[in-house]
């Protein structure tokens, strides 16, 4: 009885997980699919042909989204890792203030600061530029990087590094052979988060990118709001693909490395 219930729940999880995604495959091949038809009455590859044309700007959006997410992730690692390590392993004056400073952007709606930044960026000629968009994406990304990685560092400790150092390893070797391998699984998950946060940004990109820097969410949004569901479905699937790929590589860390996700428990 209990076992049966568990299987019902498990199958329910699978169905609910794929229910909003799987029908989009069918929608993306439909030409005419009106109520009450359960399957398209006319099939077509038109939506896919359309997204492959430069006219749809899907390719351009994909390239921009990818480039921005990669740049933002790398930069988040560069500034986030040292901060996370200091917060996790050292005590210093003003530490709790720093923790607060870095958490506030997670809590305060992104659009609030973006409107102010927009005003400044116009003056600095940073609106409508790739760099401007990357900068504004950093605001939510850095805090998440620090949050996850400080938990990883706290869990990882310094014992192994100390041992390596007493055995005569130089700082670079300690980093290369001890620290990095130790934090790598956690770093993967943290990078996945920053990548996905940047990948999903919509309104901040619209405002700072000014319609000149086109990302995938900006291509997708008008099709959903325009109820052009066949094309929206095709763009959605392209939008999802890299994200699911990222999950595929980090899924094990997500489930097994308790210190990584435990980071969210430290807020």
């Amino acid at each position: 009885m209990k076992k049966a219930l568990r299987w019902v729940i498990l199958i329910g999880i699978v169905i609910v997980s794929i229910a909003p995604i799987l029908p989009q495959f069918i929608w993306s091949f439909s030409h005419r699919w009106l109520f009450p038809a359960l399957l398209p009455t006319t099939w077509s590859t038109e939506p896919w042909e359309y997204v492959m044309t430069p006219s749809s700007r899907v390719g351009e959006g994909f390239a921009n989204s990818l480039a921005i997410a990669v740049v933002v992730s790398i930069f988040s690692i560069l500034v986030g890792l040292p901060a996370a390590r200091a917060l996790a392993l050292h005590d210093f004056r003003g530490k709790s203030a720093v923790e607060w400073l870095l958490m506030v952007p997670i809590i305060v709606p992104g659009i609030v600061a973006t409107m102010g930044i927009h005003q400044v960026f116009i003056r600095l000629n940073l609106t409508d530029t790739f760099i401007g968009v990357c900068l504004v994406h950093l605001i939510p990304c850095i805090p998440y990087m620090v949050l996850v990685m400080s938990s990883v560092f706290a869990n990882y400790g310094t014992d192994l590094e100390d041992t390596a150092r007493t055995l005569g390893a130089g700082p670079l070797n300690v980093l290369r052979y001890v620290t990095l391998p130790g934090i790598l699984p956690g770093l993967l998950v943290a990078t996945m988060f920053t990548f996905l946060i940047s990948w999903g940004q919509y309104i901040t990109t619209v405002l700072i990118g000014g319609g000149v820097i086109i990302t995938l969410p900006m291509v997708l949004f008008p099709f959903i709001s325009g109820t052009n569901y066949a094309t929206a479905a095709a763009v959605s699937l392209i939008f999802v693909a890299p994200a699911v790929l990222v999950l595929f590589f980090t899924s094990r860390q997500l489930g097994r490395e308790s210190s990584v996700m435990g980071g969210f428990g430290r807020l």
């Binding site: 359309y50 044309t53 006219s55 749809s56 099709f223 709001s225 052009n228």
Partner: peptide
């Protein structure tokens, strides 16, 4: 840009 028909036709 909400109509892919207009978008395609313009291009």
């Amino acid at each position: 840009g909400g109509s892919d028909k207009i978008n395609t036709d313009v291009d």
